[in-house]
């Protein structure tokens, strides 16, 4: 495919009078891992949530694989899509949340097959794929456990498998390790690294600098709704040009 997988252009979003995203331009190509860094309140999560239209941008647009997200362009206007069309777009973008958000009344397997079945895939192939994914995140054999019976790290790995169940082209991670006990962070980051190595395009909001250094193709530093720096981690993390980025990196290191 020509051109980047994700194109974000002049994206703006405010909550009330407060601007949260103040003109974001960002490209992510196939197989790229982009890590969003920045102080809390910088707009990292909002940017991520605009990518699958969980937040509606006030201006600008997001395109994935050449397809506008959440809107249709016709005769000089962007018309918001209906809930069905938006749901179809979201199903091709996986998202993993800080608080896991597994469905508590479902078993692990039921969590994974809910979306594929809802989209008409049939139960048998959904179950087969779910078992493959559980094996991949190291949870084979836990199909019938309920989320509450699992550790935080295991829950987050189930959530990653669930996000993969619709065979997305892009995965979004919103601080996937921030709600975990320190000793459980490693197992989740290992799964992320495995996915990155397999060529999955990912946008990751995280405070794990080691992960950013090792796995990211691009690190993007946000502050007050703008991108201050973006580039390979070797440059942006080692020699940040902006004072704000230097101060942040010094604080989290």
């Amino acid at each position: 495919m020509s051109g980047p997988l994700v194109r974000i252009r002049s994206l703006r979003k405010g909550f009330g009078a407060r601007p949260v995203l103040d003109g974001i331009d960002l490209d992510v190509v196939e197989g790229e891992v982009a890590v969003l860094l920045g102080p809390s309140g910088a707009g990292k999560s909002t940017l991520l949530r605009c990518v699958n239209h969980l937040e509606k941008p006030d201006a600008g647009f997001v395109e994935i694989g050449g397809e506008l997200i959440g809107y249709r362009y016709r005769r000089g206007a962007l018309h918001e899509l209906g809930p069905k069309a938006i749901a179809a777009q979201r199903s091709r973008i996986g998202m993993v949340f800080q608080q896991f958000n597994l469905f508590g009344q479902f078993t692990v397997l039921e969590n994974l097959i809910e979306a594929p079945i809802a989209h008409g895939g049939g139960r048998e192939p959904a179950v087969a794929h779910a078992r493959e994914l559980l094996d991949r995140v190291g949870l084979a054999g836990r199909e019938n456990a309920y989320p509450r019976e699992l550790s935080g790290g295991q829950q987050q790995r189930v959530a990653i498998a669930r996000a993969m169940a619709m065979r997305p082209r892009l995965l979004l991670f919103d601080e996937p390790t921030s709600a975990l006990d320190p000793e459980l962070v490693g197992e989740v980051l290992a799964v992320l690294k495995d996915l990155a190595d397999s060529g999955m395009a990912m946008i990751v909001v995280t405070h794990e600098m080691g992960f950013a250094r090792e796995v990211a193709d691009t690190t993007v530093f946000l502050d007050a709704g703008r991108i201050l720096e973006a580039g390979p981690p070797a440059e942006t993390l080692a020699n940040p040009r902006h004072e704000r980025a230097r101060a942040f990196l010094a604080a989290v290191r």
């Binding site: 699958n52 969980l54 809930p83 069905k84 749901a87 179809a88 777009q89 979201r90 199903s91 091709r92 973008i93 996986g94 998202m95 949340f97 958000n101 597994l102 469905f103 809910e114 979306a115 809802a118 989209h119 959530a159 669930r162 996000a163 619709m166």
Partner: peptide, 9 residues
């Protein structure tokens, strides 16, 4: 939110 992200109706 998670259900929305999975594209459920």
């Amino acid at each position: 939110e998670a259900a929305n992200a999975l594209g459920l109706s």
